[in-house]
């Protein structure tokens, strides 16, 4: 299975090779989608992990024991879908396939599992329906 997670490291944990341990000890394959280091405040890593269900949950437990905060990407991206008018303006800047609008129904389709947290939709939505918290 695959899972998209946001890892938050405190400054003290910045030199821990956490992702390496996930690969070696838990057999997970890691795809780093975004990383940000906040001077003096640690850093955030947005990764996609692929592996067995138990591998992933043990890996998460390992990170948490180290003091790394782990959250699903759904906790970081809020889309107020009920107020969406399906204008399509956000799809102009979304290249990951998360936001799509097309014939025949022309209703906005939102697939969070494809999001790479580029953040462009936040600016492009004329109704300001997206909120993303990542990094600084």
């Amino acid at each position: 299975m695959k899972s998209r997670l946001v890892l938050n490291f405190s400054t003290e944990l910045a030199d821990t090779p956490a992702t390496f341990s996930l690969v070696r000890d838990y057999g997970l394959s890691i795809n780093i989608l975004k990383a940000e280091i906040l001077p003096g405040r640690g850093g955030e890593l947005f990764i996609e992990v692929e592996g067995t269900k138990s591998g992933i949950s043990q890996g998460i437990e390992f990170l948490q024991n180290k003091g790394v905060t782990v959250e699903g990407i759904d906790k970081r991206i809020k889309f107020n879908e009920n107020n969406c008018v399906s204008c399509g303006a956000c799809t102009a800047v979304c290249f990951s396939g998360t936001l799509q609008i097309k014939s025949p129904d022309w209703e906005l389709e939102f697939d969070l599992s494809k999001c790479v947290v580029c953040g462009l939709c936040v600016k492009a939505c004329p109704l300001k329906l997206f909120e993303i918290s990542f990094g600084g």
């Binding site: 008018v85 399906s86 204008c87 399509g88 303006a89 956000c90 799809t91 102009a92 290249f95 609008i101 129904d105 022309w106 209703e107 004329p126």
Partner: peptide, 13 residues
């Protein structure tokens, strides 16, 4: 080049 509407076709319909 990717195209995108700004006018809601579903609402228009």
């Amino acid at each position: 080049v990717k195209t995108a509407p700004l006018s809601s076709i579903s609402k228009a319909r």
